[in-house]
């Protein structure tokens, strides 16, 4: 099997499991809606302040909902000892890592696909632009990448649900800063050129963190 075929096999397995149980996407989606409700009341969110606050609220929602999905996705492997099966299969660790990252990325993007129109309608901010979607993609990729690694660690600890955010949030800080700033700049009428510095932060983070996670992921699984 080629690397790509193995990669697709891991992704297909995740999608098939999700089609069957629907536990990850539905949980993330409902959780996001609840957060939106809470933020609306907590910040008294209305159109007048939406432009300044919306990017932060959007990314906070994505980050928190993301931990839910990441935890579920890796806990599922652990519960069914799937990782052992994957390790026994003639498959490199990098294929498993990229497969899991791709699966988590996909689930998060699907949730964002529901969030973006909702945000646009509720707060009157223009999120349906190619540049915003690019920033969403880059931010989500970095977050899914480091998140997959951290979730693989967290599911093996005693306090797994608590452990993931504690481990992940301080490491995901550059993504959060970069993504919120880039989204904010775009929402307030800037173009991609205006937020190039932040896009660069996201790209550099994605590259660096994916490389480091890829190298260390094998050590997390082993044992």
């Amino acid at each position: 099997m080629s690397f790509l075929r193995k990669l697709l096999a891991v992704i297909n397995k995740d999608i098939a499991a999700e089609m069957h149980t629907r536990e990850i996407i539905s949980a993330m989606l409902v959780f996001s809606l609840l957060q939106l409700l809470i933020f609306s009341f907590a910040l008294d969110l209305h159109a007048a302040i939406a432009e300044t606050v919306a990017p932060g609220v959007l990314w906070a929602t994505i980050v928190f909902a993301g931990t839910l999905g990441l935890n579920r996705s890796l806990a599922r492997e652990q519960r069914n000892s799937c990782i052992d099966g994957l390790l026994l299969a003639p498959m490199s660790r990098s294929a498993i890592f990229f497969g899991k990252v791709a699966g988590n990325f996909l689930f998060m993007v699907l949730v964002e696909a529901a969030l973006v129109p909702l945000f646009s309608a509720l707060f009157g901010v223009a999120l349906f632009r190619l540049s915003v979607l690019l920033v969403l993609g880059l931010g989500t990729l970095g977050y899914a990448s480091v998140g997959t690694l951290m979730a693989a660690i967290a599911v093996n600890t005693r306090a797994r649900e608590v452990m993931l955010p504690v481990l992940l949030f301080p490491l995901a800080l550059p993504v959060l800063i970069g993504a919120v700033q880039a989204t904010g700049g775009l929402v307030s009428g800037g173009s991609l050129v205006d937020v190039a510095a932040w896009v660069r932060v996201l790209v550099v983070y994605d590259l660096v963190i994916t490389a480091v996670s890829l190298v260390t992921f094998g050590y997390v699984l082993e044992g």
Binding site: L167, P170, L171, I209, V212, Y219, G223
Partner: peptide, 28 residues
């Protein structure tokens, strides 16, 4: 053994993010 392995990975990944955070915070 597992504790050592996990914390080694965390210590490595965490340290790599520190300069990235530094630049992001400074630009911010």
């Amino acid at each position: 053994e597992q504790r050592a392995r996990f914390s080694s990975v965390y210590g490595i990944v965490a340290f790599v993010t520190v300069p990235l955070s530094w630049f992001a915070i400074r630009w911010w």
